[in-house]
Design a binder for these strands. Structure first.
Length: 495
RNA sequence: GGUCGGUUUGCCGAGUGGCUAGGCGACGGUCUGCAAAACCGUUUACACCAGUUCGAAUCUGGUACCGACCUCCA
């Protein structure tokens, strides 16, 4: 029981045992970014969360097809303008130029955070034909109607048949009706306020528009995900993910479209990640409570005292569960920086450690094996990374004790030690997707110079010339090299 | 106003009807020429008020506060 993966299904509002539709294979769709500006740190959290889910499914041996779309049309601003073309106008670029620019930046950011590329990354504008086909199908099935060149999804009619509109977000169609405000323009085109556009007629000044049986226009925002998930994963697939804020209306409408078109539920499990807060409040550009990933790296922001590396930020994110809100503060990042470096030091130490080959099955041995088992069952429990990470830190404790001789190798069997090594590396690098940022910067010239300075300093120390010794140590620290005088001589590391 | 979620030790954050998560910080120690780093140890909290229970921070009800969403030409 403990070894089975369970996931929290937002639709069922409970944890369920994960059983893929087709044995050994998983289809996963995650709503990607709208590429009209630089990626938001909150988006990063969502995609890092789903990256870890993707990596863990791969680790479990599933063949995963991971589809994450890029929205480049149909997502509108408050003023009704397309977000992409509005920004393109501002930057004096062709809409597709803008899409390319921010897609590239998005991919760069995903690489910086060491996330794996999805299997398919489809764009909305690349699937106009399929979107028009789906609108036709929904019309044919009677769940949509045309009005002045626009096509609206008929939520009342849909709900009469399937009784499920609002199920995901916990909304009732009657309440949606009572909330209607009078100042909504063109509401008279809709039969019911909860109806939504699946095809919109474009005004003359609208740039991004295409021909269709109903008008020259553009697809509704929700349509692309229904179309692309169906195209690449089939009518019903295993996992649909996205940010919590997309539950309503985006995912609710997506479900309605899929069922309205194919007659079946699109996803077996709905997974939603929670929001990233800063200093206890929602990140918002309008009130200045925001920080971009780049500002976070450089420290060029009033919200942080210094820069934090991408892996520190990722480590920070791992410390909370993907379904919980998480609060970004300078203090919390500083703590994460220390924790991350402790983890990497342990990884380096473990890499050099070797078990002599004979050991006994002691209490410590038992404790080690239990710790390892718990890490796995924690991750199986709806991808509980903070708990699994806590377990990994218990492994760090084992590693350090072995290194310092507080724990003898003879108290640990060779088999258990190998299991420790395997589990530690799998979780830290393969599943959490962390990497050692500092180590990769070193080169031979630098190493040689550092060793030379240490030799000179040790000669000074031997003569009790503390002034020279401390000068070397202090100056090296200033340029980011920290010396450590240990029992077995002096070692150094970059900070 | 509606829907959903949250309130955990100095900070960040898991979790469970009885069994000190973890990280950071702080304090003590080991090591050291002194440091730093590292390591070891200590640091026992669960918004408030009722109720259920042998026992609740964990379940139930209420209160307060916080957050997200509330539609696509708003």
């Amino acid at each position: 029981m403990k070894n089975k993966l369970t996931v929290y299904n937002s639709k069922a509002r409970k944890k369920e045992i994960f059983e893929p539709i087709h044995e050994g294979r998983v289809g996963m769709y995650v709503c990607g970014p709208t590429v009209y500006s630089e990626v938001h740190l909150g988006n990063v959290r969502t995609f890092v969360s789903f990256d870890i889910i993707y990596r863990y499914l791969l680790h479990l041996g599933y063949k995963v097809r991971y589809v994450r779309n890029i929205t480049d049309v149909g997502h509108l601003t408050d003023g009704g303008e397309d977000k992409v073309s509005a920004r393109a106008k501002l930057e004096q670029l062709e809409p597709m130029e803008l899409v390319q620019k921010y897609s590239n930046m998005f991919h760069e950011m995903m690489a910086i955070f060491n996330t794996k590329s999805p299997s398919v990354e489809p764009r909305a504008t690349g699937h106009l034909i399929e979107q028009i086909e789906m609108v036709k199908d929904i019309l044919d099935n009677g769940f949509a109607y045309e009005q002045n060149g626009s096509v609206y999804f008929d939520t009342l009619k849909f709900n009469d048949k399937y009784k499920s509109y609002g199920q995901l977000s916990g909304r009732k169609i009657d309440e949606l009706f009572s909330e209607t405000r009078d100042d909504l323009k063109n509401q008279d085109e809709k039969h019911h306020p909860s109806d939504f556009a699946i095809w919109m007629k474009a005004s003359d000044e609208h740039i991004m528009k295409w021909n269709s049986p109903w008008s020259v226009g553009f697809p509704g925002w929700h349509l692309e995900c229904s179309v692309m998930s169906t195209k690449y994963l089939g009518k019903t697939f295993d996992i649909h993910g996205g940010g919590n804020d997309l539950k309503f209306p985006h995912h609710e409408n997506e479900i309605a479209q899929n069922i309205g078109c194919t007659g079946v539920e699109p996803a077996k499990y709905w997974l939603h990640s929670n929001m990233l807060l800063m200093n206890g409040k929602k990140m918002s550009k309008s009130d200045g409570n925001t920080i971009s990933p780049y500002e976070l790296f450089t420290g060029d922001s009033p919200h942080v005292s210094k820069g934090y590396s991408p892996m520190v930020v990722k480590f920070f994110m791992l410390q909370s569960h993907y379904r919980s809100t998480m609060d970004l503060t300078d203090q919390a990042l500083q703590a994460a920086e220390k924790g991350y470096s402790k983890l990497m030091e342990a990884a380096k130490a473990l890499d050099k450690m070797q078990h002599p080959g004979n050991g006994n099955e002691t209490e410590n041995n038992k404790k080690l094996l239990t710790t390892i088992d718990n890490i796995i069952s924690d991750m199986n429990d709806d991808f509980n990374t903070p708990k699994a990470l806590a377990g990994v830190f218990e492994l760090v404790n084992f590693i350090n004790k072995l290194k310092d001789g507080h724990l003898k190798y003879s108290d640990i069997t060779n088999e258990a030690f190998e299991k420790l090594k395997e589990t530690f590396n799998q979780f830290v690098f393969d599943i959490f997707g962390l990497k050692d940022e500092v180590g990769s910067q070193e080169d031979g010239l630098f190493d040689g110079m550092a060793e030379l300075l240490i030799t000179i300093r040790n000669e000074a120390r031997a003569k009790k010339d503390w002034a020279t010794s401390d000068l070397i140590r202090d100056k090296l620290l200033e340029i980011g090299v920290q010396l450590k005088d240990g029992k077995d001589g002096t070692s150094w590391s970059r900070i």
